[in-house]
Design a binder for these strands. Structure first.
Length: 760
DNA sequence: GGGTTAACCTTTTTT
DNA sequence: AGGTTAACCC
């Protein structure tokens, strides 16, 4: 028994962390080691035993979901509501700061949040205004570049103009974009963070009041923080020095979007005297799974170092299945799930994990034909759907007519005779006088610069908006939304659209009214409920799928799986080029992140982990010969059991929809399968399929004279590049190409007809 | 203004 | 391959 019941249910390391004395503290929390428990108990402990007011605590997470869950759990522990405690995502908290101190932050009170889609549109608008060709200046890349700058804290004004024309133009676009945002009161996601940081940096009074208020700052998923988030945290905890961060360098999988593991790796250096506590006891996975995951992650260099252990039994070995293609892979997976469910287990205990979302389709098809309910994570979320964004745009105009993004979006939706010409005229007027599109539209009509028809159409649009504003002034949010949907003509527009999708859109719009009716702002401010609703829609896009099925198989990318756990996990598509992803192989330093992703995937599994790879995979209309992922070779063989397909269960051709699966037809191999595992390096030689592979298109390609008898695994010599191994083949005849990994020259695609390759 | 065709892109995702 | 988006034509 410990001093407080809060600590009773914790292990030694967890107790140490939860009851640590004030100061900087890093909890290195391995997968499944009770990270969330430590965070929630820490807050509860501070409040309960240290007489810290919840108002003096700042707790930061990365997702709204995590934040909600954490709040709920702490409230449960304390048996009291945490009402005024500052707890939320970085973006949510920064937004709150900016709303409260908009003036000091140099923002108008009615600033609007741009989500990435809105931001993309604005960038295109800037490109248009600068007369830059989108083909040469891809908006996506510009968006990425601008966000990277902001996330590193670099303002356009402070950037050097750059040496080459590329950099100079980018700089020009960045400047113009920021100017546009300033002019129209727009704040993008990165801007929320940067602006908030600058507010604290520049305004001493505000800074000190928050530094004084927040006696304890706690951060979840610290390995995912980017440069400004880290600065923001340091600044806020500068006075109290109580920064409690929880993270796992081995689960850092968002480096590609600006997250800096370095923040975690150098924590002890940045905070001299900081305590580091390791949580290494894993409560999730059985021994085989855990040791295999440990072995894989051990291949990474530059780790803080951690080795998970468990008191659990070894459990089942990791099942390894070499599928002939992605269809076979899906059939096998579905069959396995079927027998698991037949054994009385829940479907939602099964997860199919993959590297890229494109892989989900085959699984969906097979699950569908097996009559197995499933749920795919990822994809468009509620507030990101086009029809919802249309409706929100109307609401935005009602709340603030000067919102240009909203104006652009719905001025002619449903179509009301306002075409590109008319719009261009209005835009020109707006640009020339630095006024909003709304004002420009008014002026354009007044100045009689439009043909009568167009003029009348614009006039009608302005009246619709003005009419809605007047009519909804005294209504509740739900009724406002309802009114706007009807009087904008939007609902009618989607009702008239035919097809299944249109019906879903109408349903979504109706759901929006429900969402609006149920919306209760969690902060009472001078801002109208409508504005808060709109800000909330941008910050919290809602669940990926509207209807959450009760008990269904879970399909998701490895990234989405972080933080979750399932008794039964399938890790699919474990092939070189797919996982680790080709793009990751091309960029230096990305391989380790892929390995961490693999580690994350493996450690999701509690009872049984199945890893699949396919010898041939059709992806984006091409067929690829994938060698088994290098990560497989990093798993000690004693943790692996190979599953072999009996001939009958195998789906050899793509067209046969054979083998919807009956949980039969797969034979369990034993540890003796090591020899054949190593043979997977040269899949074409595997005795399993070579003799019986029929003339699939790919097999034809191999027999094609263009390939001169090359196949994956062949050793070849090139006059210039030297020796190498064939990785992949595609196309046929004179267009046939071959991918070779040369010892010295690296990976290259060559046209067979010209390459003059010699078989070694 | 609506419907059709052609070009395009396709890692991972939250806010 | 497949889906979306942009240009294009009536």
């Amino acid at each position: 028994m410990t001093a407080t019941p809060l600590l009773d249910s914790l292990n030694d390391a967890q107790q140490l962390a939860v009851s640590a004395p004030p100061g900087a503290l890093l909890v290195l929390a391995g997968a499944g080691s009770g990270k969330t428990r430590v965070l929630t108990h820490r807050v509860a402990w501070l409040v309960q035993t240290q007489q810290i007011s919840p108002l003096a605590v700042l707790a930061v997470t990365f997702t709204n979901k995590a934040s909600r869950e954490m709040r709920g759990r702490i409230e449960e522990l304390l048996r009291m509501p945490l009402g005024g405690m500052w707890m939320g995502t970085f973006h949510g908290l920064c937004h709150r700061l900016l709303r409260m101190h908009f003036e000091a932050a140099g923002l108008p009170q009615n600033f609007e949040i741009l989500d990435s889609d809105d931001q993309y549109r604005q960038i295109r608008r800037v490109l248009r205004e600068l007369s830059l060709d989108e083909a040469h200046w891809p908006p996506r890349q510009i968006q990425w570049a601008i966000n990277s700058h902001k996330e590193e804290g670099r303002r356009a004004q402070n950037l050097p103009a750059g040496n080459d024309i590329q950099q100079q133009t980018l700089h020009k676009i960045y400047l113009a974009y920021d100017e546009l945002c300033r002019r129209f009161h727009l704040v993008d996601f990165a801007e929320l963070l940067l602006r908030s940081l600058e507010l604290l940096q520049r305004n001493q009074t505000i800074r000190e009041s928050y530094q004084q208020r927040f006696q304890h700052v706690l951060v979840d998923e610290f390995q995912d923080t980017n440069a400004i988030q880290y600065k923001w945290l340091r600044l806020l905890s500068e006075r109290s020095k109580n920064l409690f961060v929880v993270g796992d360098d081995d689960q850092s999988i968002y480096g590609w979007r600006g997250a800096r593991v370095e923040n975690l790796l150098s924590f002890e250096k940045d905070f001299p005297g900081a305590t580091v506590i390791r949580l290494e006891q894993n409560y999730r996975s059985s021994g085989n799974i855990l040791r295999a995951a440990n072995a894989v992650i051990a291949h990474n260099a530059g780790r803080l170092g951690k080795e998970l252990w468990t008191t659990r039994a070894d459990g089942e070995k990791i099942r390894l299945y070499a599928a002939s293609n992605e269809i076979d892979e899906a059939n096998f997976t579905v069959a396995s799930i079927e027998s698991w469910v037949a054994g009385g287990n829940r479907r939602d205990g099964c997860a199919v994990l993959y590297r890229s979302n494109a892989q989900s389709r085959v699984f969906e098809e097979k699950l569908l034909s097996a009559g197995m309910p499933y749920r795919v994570y990822g994809g468009l979320r509620f507030f990101e759907r086009a029809e919802i964004k249309d409706a929100l745009a109307y609401l935005r105009l009602v709340s603030n007519r000067d919102s240009d993004p909203a104006f652009e979006r719905v001025v002619n939706l449903p179509t009301r005779g306002i075409g590109a010409k008319t719009l261009e005229e209005i835009r020109r007027c707006a640009r020339a006088q630095q006024i909003s599109l709304w004002c420009a539209a008014k002026q354009t009509i007044a100045a009689d610069r439009l043909p009568p028809r167009a003029s009348a159409a614009v006039q009608r649009f302005l009246e619709i908006i003005a009419g809605m504003t007047a009519a909804t002034a005294d209504l509740e949010l739900g009724e406002i939304t309802d009114h706007v949907l009807i009087h904008s003509g939007l609902l009618e527009h989607y009702r008239n659209e035919c097809g299944e999708r249109a019906q879903g859109k109408v349903e979504n719009l109706e759901e929006l009214v429900t969402a609006a009716r149920n919306f209760t702002p969690d902060e009472t401010q001078e801002m109208g409920t409508l504005s808060l609703f709109l800000a909330n829609a941008a910050l919290e896009a809602g669940e990926g799928q509207a209807d959450e099925w009760d008990d269904c198989v879970q399909l998701m990318s490895l990234h989405s799986a972080k933080g979750l756990e399932f008794p039964l996990v399938f890790l699919c598509g474990m092939e070189e080029g797919l996982f680790p992803h080709q793009r990751a192989l091309e960029e230096p330093g990305r391989l380790e992140e892929e390995r961490r992703l693999c580690y994350v995937g493996m450690t999701r599994a509690m009872k049984q982990l199945t890893i699949c790879h396919a010898e041939i995979r059709r992806l984006y209309g091409r067929e690829h010969y994938g060698q088994p992922s290098r990560f497989l070779k990093e798993i000690p063989t004693e943790h692996i059991e190979e599953i072999r397909a009996t001939r009958m269960a195998r789906s050899y051709t793509r067209s046969s929809g054979y083998g919807s699966g009956h949980g039969m037809g797969y034979a369990h191999g034993h540890a003796s399968g090591h020899a054949s595992r190593s043979s997977k390096n040269a899949p074409a030689n595997s005795s399993l399929h070579t003799p019986t592979r029929p003339a699939t298109p790919s097999a034809t390609a191999i027999a094609d004279p263009g390939f001169q008898g090359l196949k994956p695994g062949s050793q070849v010599r090139h006059q210039k590049f030297g020796e190498g191994m064939v990785l992949d083949l595609e196309g046929r005849g004179e267009h046939a190409r071959v991918q070779v990994n040369f010892k010295d020259a690296g990976q290259k695609w060559l046209v067979c007809a010209h390459a003059n390759l010699d078989l070694v």
